[in-house]
Design a protein around this nucleic acid. Structure first.
Lengths: 263, 263
DNA sequence: CGTTCTATTGACTCGATTCAAACTAAGTGG
DNA sequence: CCACTTAGTTTGAATCGAGTCAATAGAACG
């Protein structure tokens, strides 16, 4: 199984926000699922669907995309379960769309219900996952509503970086960025043309580089400062060390960690 | 008890999104609480607080307000429990602020935990309440991110109207509006000056009136059309009849239903 | 090797912000 | 009960960030 076991991704994510017992981890190993592969801008789920499974994202990025406006309202990274709320409210209000190539594990909803009954702590952790998502949404509103487009893009970059690092990815401040500038624009509620200019400005200021489908953050501290980024809202257990950690040095943009997915 | 029993407000709200059994309703009557009164712009809870109770809003409006930016990320109406998520993640990320005079019932968190254990259906309904709030957040992002300020304000007005009507208020398309134009601006992510001009435009188009702390919607259909408002995302059980219902006629703005609260 | 998607650039336009001032309503204390 | 104070609303003028349009350049793909 080339992507490893799906439950380890979920375990990493849950561990980033809550403490799991041995018993909880064992329960996670009982997960059954089927794997799905998607190309960029494929819809994994569509508005109005009432799926009987939940999507555990294993590789790549997913987003909720409003079909009417094209607005992206959340972005998900490996270990996230974007539609966990369908356990309680099955109908989808937006498209669940792939940003770049994606690998998903479709897990029966019944599985989450059953492990929630068996472990109160696991049930709590899963709810924290939903609460953390809601906190992200609130922050997204603040971002779009109150920041200018430069810090808006910077803030989104910071958020994704910290979230990736919380599940063991992007340790070297390089993140796969298979999304287009238009995707970024849809997430930040700016026009694609303007997104391009913002990225150029971020490059000009030597805060990051974006090439070969990889973003390399070259000045993490300045990026955080520009974005006025405070990771508290993410609800991570060990968030401060990440920010305080060794400053990312000027990384030469060689050997990009491209996200490659067979399809 | 001049405001009636707090649990009836919650019962109304839960009934608007889920079906409750007799047993569920009986459980709701066992609620214990203390009443709190607040003036406009008071903080009911502050960022960083870890309260041991949840706020059930009985009268007036509450909002989550980000202290850094002043951005409002949600608005709550009677029957809502804005901090229900603290059952699982206690720390608050924003101020919970009164918009106009407010009456709140502080309900022990343990109460919600206990009734959730006693009735799976009630537990589910409470979770739907949280999910509905998240759906509102997503829609708020779409609103701020993709609509111009005129339809943005119109959309917010539509949302609040439909939510009020779902719990039996504003049946005549008049809603108490104790908030200032600056509050509205903070919710719609526009400047206070611009908010004023938008309101004038809405008045000029004869879609609504705003006087004596009351908004009177005089042309509901046109307002819905301007806002491209679709109430599906609210997760209400009987939402379409509300929209299809008898069109609100031109209401003469006499005898405003002012929200008066002793303090 | 052409087709398609994505990125880039410049010029023009416009919605919205800002600043400043005037006006109105509401609340307070003498 | 009126003068004073404060909070909220309204107006105009100048400015600016961001959007739109349109054309070009480049990268990716079959």
């Amino acid at each position: 199984m080339q992507h490893g076991f799906a439950f380890t991704k979920l375990a990493d994510r849950l561990t980033s926000i809550a403490e799991l017992s041995e018993h909880d981890l064992e329960l996670l190993t009982t997960m059954s699922y089927t794997i799905g592969y998607f190309n960029s801008h494929d819809h994994v789920l569509r508005k109005g669907d009432k799926p009987s499974t939940c999507c555990l994202l294993l590789q790549g990025y997913l987003c909720w995309k409003d079909p009417g406006s094209g607005q992206i309202t959340s972005i998900f990274i490996p270990g996230d379960v974007p539609d966990l709320h369908t356990v309680v409210a099955p109908e989808l209000g937006s498209h669940l769309t792939a940003l770049g190539p994606v690998v998903v594990a479709f897990v029966p909803r019944a599985y989450f219900e059953s492990i929630s009954l068996e472990s109160a702590n696991l049930a709590r952790s899963l709810r924290r996952l939903e609460v953390a998502e809601a906190a992200c949404l609130r922050n997204w509103i603040i971002n779009i509503g109150s920041r200018d487009s430069l810090s808006r893009v910077a803030h989104l970059t910071c958020e994704i970086t910290v979230r990736l690092r919380a599940v063991g990815m992007a340790q070297d401040y390089r993140l796969p960025s298979p999304f287009t500038q238009s995707d970024l624009a849809a997430a930040c509620a700016i026009s694609p043309v303007h997104a391009n200019r913002i990225i150029q400005e971020l490059r000009r200021r030597r805060l990051l580089q974006w090439q070969s489908r990889t973003i390399t953050i070259t000045d993490w501290q300045s990026l955080v400062h520009l974005a006025r980024f405070d990771p508290d809202y993410l609800g991570l257990r060990h968030t401060n060390p990440l920010l305080r950690s060794e400053q990312a040095p000027s990384i030469s943009p060689s050997e990009p960690t491209v996200l490659s997915v067979p399809c």
